[in-house]
Amino acid sequence: MTALADLREGLRFDPAVTTAFEACRMAQLDLALEDPRVMSVEADLGDCWGLKFREEMPDRFLDFGIAEASAVGAAAGLAMSGKRPFLNTFGTFALMRAAEQVRLDICYHRAPVVIAGMFTGIAAGFSGPTHHAIEDVSVARSLPNLTVIAPADAVQAYDATKAAFALGAPVYLRLGVEPGPQVYDAHEPFEIGRGRVLREGGSLTIVTCGVTIVPEVLKAASLLGDARVVDMPTIKPIDRDLLVRCARETGRVVTVEEHSTIGGLGSAVAEVLAEDAPVPLRMVGLPDAFVKEIGDYGEQLRRHGLDAAGIEREVRAWLS
């Protein structure tokens, strides 16, 4: 894969080893250097790739300590007064511990806060179920006024962060924790609400999103042969037109996500297809259960059939 540094002047990270969350942090810093309204709101996890921001602009790095309700409420207050806060914390803590603050303070008031959620999915494999966010998309998707984006890699995370900022409305970014294989080898304007066909194919469409998962799906698709792959980073509002077109053209749809199959990408796709293009659908994701085993990320994905081999196996079993 072409090194990104060759493709774009000024790029300062190696996307092969940079996490999506780290890339999001870099975009935040770049935005902050251009725009004095940008603030970083923290809940004692600034240590996770946030130290450069703190060092460069300490007065705009606002740590609320281990107190998410207060951090979310204050972020909303800052946004209502014309600031442009990014709220950086674990996905579980923002969207579940402080869910009502997100709902009322941010979403109801359309306060332009970008919630950057790290440690999403089961990437924090050794940390155990307290630190897995396998329901965050379900919560986020149900909240009015909240846009939900799960980038596929660090490059897209950087671009999506800038797009989320430009939107000027509440956004949840789902950013994983491990660096994943690179999917995009050049920056491009990120269009919120638009999916992208990454691989052509005619016998079925696999719709997916998220760090590591998108590359695993691409590998699975090449093993399967004639499978189309759609990267759907914006889970809400979802790209209905693209979904309907792919369903009609390929006749079958599979969704793959590192999230409970209740309420996540699969559900979002099912809602569209059931209404506008009913075709056979298979949802591949995490079961409706807490993940009790610990292990490294790769091992966790294998256990749950979310590596390329597992995805291929699941799709073949469904087709047979």
Binding site: A69, G73, A74, G77, L78, A79, M80, S81, D105, H109
Partner: peptide, 28 residues
């Protein structure tokens, strides 16, 4: 709720006003 003139924040779900007030006070 904020559809009413003069209302700064939708309230009544308790415990929201002070955190948001902190943000407003920090902003300026």
């Amino acid at each position: 709720h904020t559809g009413i003139p003069g209302v700064e924040l939708a309230t009544g779900s308790l415990g929201h006003g002070l955190p948001v007030g902190v943000g407003l006070a920090m902003a300026d």
